[in-house]
Design a protein around this nucleic acid. Structure first.
Lengths: 216, 216
DNA sequence: CTCGTTCGGACAGTGCCGCTATCCAATCAC
DNA sequence: GTGATTGGATAGCGGCACTGTCCGAACGAG
């Protein structure tokens, strides 16, 4: 198919498709003549993934490009591809100088990681991200919430265990990586939404407040 | 204190402080003369919250304004304030027409909610958000991951239960709401980062891949 | 073969967002 | 008094994600 049909079938404007081609998110179509190309179902699929990562996952165009590059790299071990998805999802280390709160946060995370026996490397950008959030909690004087860290780690370990298990024995490596990336990025969004629903349920149950529009 | 000191103590430029004042994120200082005002520790604290929500939580300036308005509204029940934080955190319903995937996703979520006995209202924007993500999974042919929904709900219920419990018996209502909002918004970021670390740990453990730079 | 449509490709322009810079008269600190 | 700072208004900037326009080549219905 050519770009017009690709646009019609994906719901993405031709101009945007051209933009994604320029930015390297979408591979070029197969040349049928010096200035003519044709696209296939793989392009359509890729285009749908692009929209999902951008619209639902909230990734930027560059982050999406990097994630997709990891998907495409056949030499990249699954582990690395997953890490790549992390790196681009989590904010890129904003060069924060280590103040008191930062060091306290780092210590707190290190303690919990050691306690749970997690084998994680400090090079994982998520480490930096987690420390940053914890430090922010501490600076706001909200140590209470920083104390939920243990709970978060326990529950996320359970989640990750199922997620990784669900992924190990798929046949096609490319499809597996694709699934991991989508699951990682969209999973964040889904988890956040589900957390909101759970919070509504639990606050109703524990606080006994009824969901009336407004009191008074 | 006046704006210069507020800027020095918060690390936010005077220009940005003026911007936040204009946009209604930061309440005006107390007038000491027709064109002079003074700020106190509450302003400093608020300013730190603004930066946390924007930089760490990833909220937009408008979303931050709305969240803080909910914090300030003393008539708003705690439940509502929390919901308000959800609404602005989750993407604002992008007017999606209900196709087949959408209805299937909605059914799936409704079933799980019924099964767990959650009391949640469809007016909760998180409902719409969750359905949107699930529908996206289905459209991508990634039904596997949509099947993690039960797990996500179970773990998020556990998380929410602890979070709500940790919040119920604080004295000051304003501080409580503040804590809830910060915990909700920053909690998303922290949970995502912790999930990445857990994924690294579990993929190491289950896939047996070692975190080498690259194979070959 | 003709002729209107569509194509790939290049590049300029647009709208929004989160600031940032400049200017002003009034006020403050010394 | 005098030089810095203030509150307030307004204009401008840089980045991002497109979007619009133009071109000459190719396609495809008649």
């Amino acid at each position: 198919m050519r770009v017009g049909e690709l646009s019609r079938r994906s719901g993405v404007s031709v101009a945007s498709i051209k933009y994604y081609l320029r930015e390297g998110l979408l591979p070029a179509g197969e040349r049928t003549s010096p200035n003519q190309a044709s696209y296939d179902d793989a392009h359509l699929r890729r285009l749908r993934m692009i929209r999902a990562l951008i619209d639902v996952g909230g990734l930027s165009v560059v982050a999406t490009r990097d994630v997709l590059a990891a998907v495409d790299d056949p030499g990249l071990p699954l582990f690395q591809a997953l890490g790549r998805a992390s790196g681009t999802t989590t904010a890129p280390a904003p060069e924060e100088e280590p103040d008191e709160a930062w060091e306290q946060a780092e210590q707190m995370l290190a303690d919990h990681v050691a306690e749970r026996g997690w084998q994680v490397t400090a090079e994982n950008p998520a480490w930096h991200g987690a420390v940053g959030v914890l430090a922010t909690y501490l600076r706001l004087g909200d140590a209470d919430l920083a104390r939920q860290l243990g709970l978060y780690m326990r529950t996320m370990e359970e989640v990750a265990e199922h997620e990784v298990a669900a992924v190990v024995d798929r046949g096609d490596r490319a499809r597996t990586v694709e699934g991991v990336v989508v699951g990682t990025v969209l999973g964040d969004t889904l988890l956040a939404a589900v957390r909101r629903l759970a919070q509504q349920h639990c606050s109703l149950r524990l606080l006994g407040e009824t969901p009336t529009r407004r009191q008074g």
